[in-house]
Design a protein around this nucleic acid. Structure first.
Length: 112
DNA sequence: AGGGTGACGACTC
DNA sequence: AGAGTCGCCACCC
């Protein structure tokens, strides 16, 4: 049995986020069936920097569309640039048109 | 086995 | 409307 920890599941979903789109921790948590474990998703993202393969955690922001990241602030700036490189406009550490670029796995991967 | 932590989320004042 | 506080659930020590 594939003993995929909750973290790996989060990574799997995050890797399915198409470029130019963003999602929220709560959306992923909800998609995994643990809507209340949004914090765990965020925690997993932080640990994603230490896992392999790399996870596009930069596409995952909080439900406000703001790029959180108290940790790894060193790479935080780089994350914003990567998002802009994908066509996402980031202003003041916040994703512009977040609602439009929002990619909900519960809706997109509903049948996958 | 227990306690503490944490890239959030929703409620309340 | 904005700011602050509490709660949740999984992982690490």
């Amino acid at each position: 049995m594939a003993e995929e920890n909750f973290f790996e599941r989060v990574y799997d979903v995050a890797r399915q986020i198409p470029a130019g789109r963003v999602t929220s921790y709560g959306a992923i948590a909800r998609y995994l069936g643990s809507a209340g474990s949004s914090r765990v998703v965020g925690y997993a993202m932080g640990a994603s920097l230490d896992i392999h393969p790399p996870v596009p955690a930069q596409r995952v922001v909080n439900r406000n569309g703001m790029i959180t990241g108290n940790l790894q602030q060193s790479g935080f700036k780089r994350r914003v640039q990567m998002l802009e490189s994908e066509g996402i406009t980031v202003e003041d550490e916040q994703v512009k048109d977040f609602k439009t670029l929002f990619w909900d796995p519960a809706t997109e991967l509903r049948s996958k």
